[in-house]
Design a protein around this nucleic acid. Structure first.
Lengths: 420, 420
DNA sequence: GCCATTTAATTCAACCACTGAACAAATTGC
DNA sequence: GCAATTTGTTCAGTGGTTGAATTAAATGGC
């Protein structure tokens, strides 16, 4: 009866390439696997069939392929229900492929391994000031961590299916780090430098390619990863020495045409404000960057790692220090102004404060929310949520590793047809 | 030999629902039709097969379906080439489905018909001040235009396959206009009000559903439509009484989670600036909105339609009037500040000035560019292009009609399986 | 304890759409 | 006129889904 119907079926089906015969199975593998990955309670084959509209016969055949490829396992104990033959629950395999997440940051290196279920199976952080080191030396240290991560994966029966490296800077499409100001890197060819290290290039099982990506972007994915039931679209703000943002839309990272999206630190907050090191005036970073906040709190000149600085500030603020409280309020207000612009533009309903901001969320949230309430046109209809990130400093490495397994879940045929 | 490879194959294949048997054909219809739509020179079946990777046999079968559905026709004169049997060119059909674009704005109503090829086959604008009218009366006038557009389509042998209505306000997912400040509308149920009008609801050939959408969003699509070879990602800024923006990413409109994206007018430019009618301080609209610019140019209180106001300003500026020039420079600078934030955040490389701004682009572009050069972090690597919109006031209606035909091209199976 | 009932999963013939090769069609060049 | 060449169609073959029938495994009533 609905003669007039407002439909908004944008991108219902969006396939780029041609659909050959085998693509059918390829696509249905992804459909079924996604369905299995999307819930905590293991679904049965029948349930998947009912949900997706596929036949039970097809689902069985597809699931057989997935089980053969160790992407899925059957739940041992039958989840007890009413009458009838008990369903056999299906869940993501804990022994199949896994993702390797790596991070190079100003004062630490990190590596972690995440399996298909999203569990972090290995995690190692090495504190080290990288600024005095050359990029090649820094990466040598990283290769060391990657090797141990690989060994841990092997021990656990996992096969690394890919790696993602988080870098605090602008990365181009070929993995070249164009600029990482806080590391002092410029035009560093990371894949080239890593090519000599066998642990990342040609180990067991046909090597994983390495993706190099901005740290704030991967940290945002980490948040997506850490809250399975959470929102699929949000802005993740990383407050480090600089301020980066990762934009997640419908569960996918928005990277911009060149992968350089998310430069929130240089969004103008007050066009007549102080001069930023980027040359412009009044960038957010001059108000809410680590240096500015520390200076305002009377801690100027303290050359601290990001998380130490945040913790020091939190301690001061917790003890009621007025300078620290004022500094945080000012930073929160500036952040709120910048984020209000983003929210007005993109119509997001969730903002996540990550990096150093996570530690300080208690003091930052109120002024941010106040600005959002004032400035977001649609805040009257549906308020914006602001909350601290679920993960801390490990966020980017975990997010990177998670992006590898997400890719496998999105397109399992690549893994299944790999050369054994 | 490329052992280490930076891959960024995001969303290579992204299908939401299950893939049933018939979906194969459904998807390939879209693949082939998109290929035909994407070039000016009509491709042959063989060429399509080579490009897409499908077999010539498959392409022939698919093309037969498309021709039967009047989506495609064969080019009459064989495009002469070297040896061999001459190819028969394929082009989009000029007599199949068409899109109906409608617009309700402060001082005019508009309707247009766009066919599959993108040609505007009918266009009518009716100047009328809608502010004193009730929404129902305004829509009655619109139905009138729609009826004539339908008649014109019928005469041309076209079948309207859908309609899109542009409204200068916030529209929710069900087509309810939550707020259209310049029309004085609030919570207007447009589909409900139109339901009684047969010309839009149940005419020939199983009625098209109507999509109600923000005017700035559809205007952005109009730009996409008017420049077939142009960039597929850009920010389109509509300078009217308010300032709206449409964000186009990879050829698709970005609507935000609720369709309320693009509120550029209320992005903060100077947090301590003048109070905006939205309640916040220093919104872009208080610097570059029509009212502010007219006031600064010494034309305060002139209650003009947007395009008249813009033309009046252009005349003044063209004759060297210092107040007008200063007003435009100030507006351009504020616009540049706001847009710089957007570009930093989304990594876009093209900004289109539309609506009244198109007329004034000559004076607005320089200050906008100057701010972008200063404030966009990546401007050193690849500069941002700022240019006037290709279409004028008709942009939103044409963009709406274009969105209907774009949807058909993206998913032709819906049209082909329609009840005859 | 046995059997009807119920739900889950598998098997199998049918069918749909793509595949690959062979073939027919239409033109150029010698 | 004939070989060469390229386009488009025909047709048997095949992969993968479909739908119904069948088997599997549990519950509950008597």
């Amino acid at each position: 009866m609905a003669v007039l119907w407002h439909c908004q079926e944008v991108t219902e089906t969006r396939t780029v390439g041609a659909v050959r015969q085998g693509s059918l199975r390829e696509l249905n593998l992804a459909v079924v696997l996604r369905r299995i990955a999307s819930t905590t309670r293991p679904p049965s084959r029948a349930e998947i069939a009912a949900d997706t509209g596929l036949t039970r016969a097809t689902v069985s055949a597809v699931v057989d392929d997935l089980i053969a490829g160790r992407l899925v396992t059957e739940a041992d104990p039958a989840p007890r229900t009413g009458a009838g033959r008990p369903a056999r629950g299906l869940l993501l395999g804990g022994t199949g492929p896994a993702g390797l997440g790596l991070e190079v940051n100003v004062d630490y290196l990190a590596a972690c391994v995440v399996d298909l279920t999203g569990a972090v199976r290995h995690h190692e952080v090495r504190r080290i000031d990288l600024r005095p080191l050359s990029p090649a030396d820094a990466l040598t240290g990283l290769v060391d961590l990657a090797g141990r991560a690989r060994a841990a994966a092997d021990d656990a029966g996992l096969t690394l299916a890919g790696a993602a490296l988080a870098v605090p800077g602008l990365v181009d499409a070929r993995g070249l780090v164009r600029l990482a100001p806080n590391l002092g890197w410029r035009d560093v060819d990371v894949p080239g430098l890593l090519a000599g290290h066998p642990a990342l290039t040609d180990p067991v099982d046909g090597v994983p390619p390495l993706v190099v990506e901005n740290e704030a972007n991967l940290a945002a994915l980490g948040e997506l990863h850490a809250r399975p039931g959470g929102p699929e679209s949000f802005l993740h703000v990383s407050g480090e020495i600089g301020i980066g943002a990762g934009i997640v839309l419908d569960g996918a990272l928005f990277r911009g045409s060149r992968g350089w999206s998310g430069e929130l630190g240089h969004v103008p907050v007050d066009p007549g404000g102080p001069t930023c090191r980027c040359g412009a005036r009044g960038c957010l970073e001059t108000y809410a960057g680590q240096e500015a906040v520390l200076a305002a709190a009377g801690l100027a000149g303290a050359d601290l790692p990001a998380d130490t600085a945040a913790r020091r500030l939190a301690d001061l603020a917790g003890s009621g220090d007025p300078a620290a409280l004022a500094a945080l309020r000012a930073a929160g207000t500036a952040l709120g102004v910048a984020v209000a612009g983003v929210v007005n533009l993109l119509d997001l309903d969730t903002v996540v404060l990550g990096g150093g901001y996570a530690t300080l969320a208690q003091w930052l949230c109120p002024p941010v929310l106040a600005e959002l309430d004032d400035r977001v046109l649609t805040s009257g209809w549906s308020p914006v949520t602001v909350r601290p990130a679920a993960l801390g400093a490990e966020s980017a490495a975990v997010g990177g590793a998670g992006s590898v397994v997400r890719r496998i879940i999105a397109r399992p045929s690549g893994w299944l047809s790999r050369p054994q």
